[in-house]
Write a protein that binds this DNA or RNA. Structure first.
Lengths: 339, 339
DNA sequence: GGTGCCTAGGAAAGCGCTTACCTACGTAAC
DNA sequence: GTTACGTAGGTAAGCGCTTTCCTAGGCACC
């Protein structure tokens, strides 16, 4: 690998001059030298060693992002928003998938810190795990104290600024819709018990139930993994245990789609024999048949706002800023009155 | 930020000793010192500066991956395979999205080189652009000459080892299926003209057409962008221009799903009034109604193989290795005989 | 008790770059 | 013809770490 010294030698200048020419410093340089250096760069196919540059500049610029899984449409959408703002500000973003493993999340905070990122954005549900939450919080605080910026999406229990979707309201909206349609025996496919997103959405549904004089009994709640396969399995379990259900509410669209597939395989029609609703309003929600009634969260927008918070240097020191974002009911074809 | 020197000072040892203890060198160290150093690390919440480490070790370990867009399920699947093998070998992977922009692709090769990655994996279709292809090839060759490893997925025109799916055969299979069902007026929703994937798949379809004594006239081919929206638009254009089509073949599933949506909106039933087929067999292909007849490519497997090639140090110097992977027809409900 | 060898720990030389500071030259002013 | 100043370019000191090489002490052995 050619180094800056090689380039300088070849052009017959000092490394300092070469460096100044290569990354356009404010120092003026003669055109003759400039050309010679640029020619040397071309001939040697020189590419500066990024680590050496970063070390020498000790100037943090990249942004670290930790999500559960970018290939999950939910996070893909958030990431898109994050990237847009980052790119507009000329920042590189480093994306890490925790695959919903708290330990990995801790490790990645450390890794990003090691890579001297200017800010860390943490996206995705929090965990019901006191010990882990405390450990993460400590790490983030240490990072902030040494000049790092932190922004989180979808959790509130941490250091740094936060963008939090109103999951509770979303749960309330979707459940209210079902009760208003006349359903009273609703099965719920919940997400992992460990995630605060699950409990928040469930809490909203419970509030709606109370307001309509109903309940959400534990036997009508199945916990799954926020993915299609486990959604289908949960739907099956629900149907077997509670044959008289008239509606199934899944706490995200993937699981709702899994439920739809299972119902189809059992010959149960939607929404005639069973209503199904989702959560998140992912793009596919429109493409399944029947199109999914769900709750929309402005995911890309949330990403943009979180990155904006993360990049905003001058915090007035008055504690973390919290931005709430609303949820919105999207009526489509998969929910109707019980027959 | 605490540095190694801080830790050493606090523990009353030299930086050398601290370094050896912190990343478990083979040099033996007394337990007493070890404990003191570890305690200092804990108290200072010390995290080694990754750039300084990388610079000092000059030991390449990370792998760079360039894809069109990870959030596209096609690439998400490939990436999953890549990651699996990388993680098994204790390698970090850096993912870059080119968003199908050749210029960005060149820039990313440079960026990854700057970051001293041990290998670069390039996934996604090649481009019909002589100039760009040559430029990329040069860059990759330079990189290889300085000790880097290169592996590409889905193109063959470059330096380095390659894993190439049989796109031509896939096109052949899907078209043959339609002809066998009795269709002869087939509309095609192709991908971007610039991509070799598009031409390869199209070539396979043409071969099938010839074998069945048909043709694929240019007026029945619409070029779109491999995404849902443009797929729907292309389907509309096709329908308007050629009202007597009996089948639509999209060159990927996203566009096929767009077409399905458009047909539904026009009240055209599938497969009774119109057959629709896709390509890639993404997970959603099973969830749309009717479920999509398509061609399966072993995407995750391709990712694994590419990463294996990239990590395999001892090439015998006998030119690039090329691994072909087959395509497979998946029959579902969206294609049937013309009525 | 002296010699030799082994071992734990430290000193210091980089890794490849940036940048504050300095030098030497040319020009302008007197 | 001095002195002063502005400027292009070079010198060298780091950035934070790893690792080679060296030193000093401890032990075994004769």
């Amino acid at each position: 690998m050619a180094t800056l010294a090689d380039v300088a030698r070849r052009a017959g200048v000092s490394p300092a001059t070469a460096s100044r020419i290569i990354n356009g410093s404010s120092k003026p340089v003669t055109d003759a030298l400039r050309e010679r250096v640029l020619a040397a760069v071309e001939e040697l196919q020189y590419v500066p060693n990024a680590h050496a540059q970063l070390l020498a500049r000790s100037h943090r610029s990249a942004i670290g992002v930790i999500v559960h899984d970018v290939s999950d449409p939910y996070f893909a959408e958030i990431t898109r928003g994050l990237q847009r703002v980052a790119t507009d500000n000329g920042r590189l973003v480093i994306i890490c998938n925790s695959y919903r493993d708290p330990i990995k999340e801790l490790e990645y905070v450390e890794l990003l810190r090691a890579h001297q990122v200017a800010a860390i954005v943490l996206a995705g549900s929090g965990y019901h795990d006191e010990e882990f939450t405390k450990a993460l919080d400590t790490k983030l605080h240490v990072y902030e104290r040494t000049g790092g910026r932190v922004a989180v999406i979808g959790r509130h229990e941490h250091a740094g600024d936060a963008v939090v979707p109103d999951n509770e309201m979303g749960g309330y909206l979707i459940a209210s819709e079902l009760y208003a349609l006349g359903h009273d025996r609703i099965g719920v496919i919940a997400g992992p018990k460990l995630l605060t997103t699950t409990t928040d959405r469930l809490a909203g549904m419970r509030r709606a139930a109370r307001e309509h004089g109903h309940k959400l009994p534990a036997r009508r709640i199945e916990y799954a993994d926020f993915d299609r396969g486990s959604g289908a399995a949960a739907a099956a379990a629900l149907l077997d245990a509670e044959p008289d259900l008239t509606a199934i509410a899944a706490l995200n669209d993937s699981m709702a789609i899994g439920a739809l597939a299972l119902l189809r395989s059992r010959g149960i029609t939607v929404p005639d024999q069973m209503s199904v609703v989702g959560f998140d309003d992912m793009p596919v929600a429109r493409d399944v048949t029947p199109a999914l009634t769900t709750v929309r969260l402005p995911l890309a927008d949330m990403g943009e706002r979180a990155m904006t918070l993360a990049l905003d240097e001058h915090r007035d020191g008055q504690g973390p800023r919290i931005e709430e974002v609303g949820a919105e009911l999207v009526r489509r074809a998969s929910a109707g009155p019980p027959r």
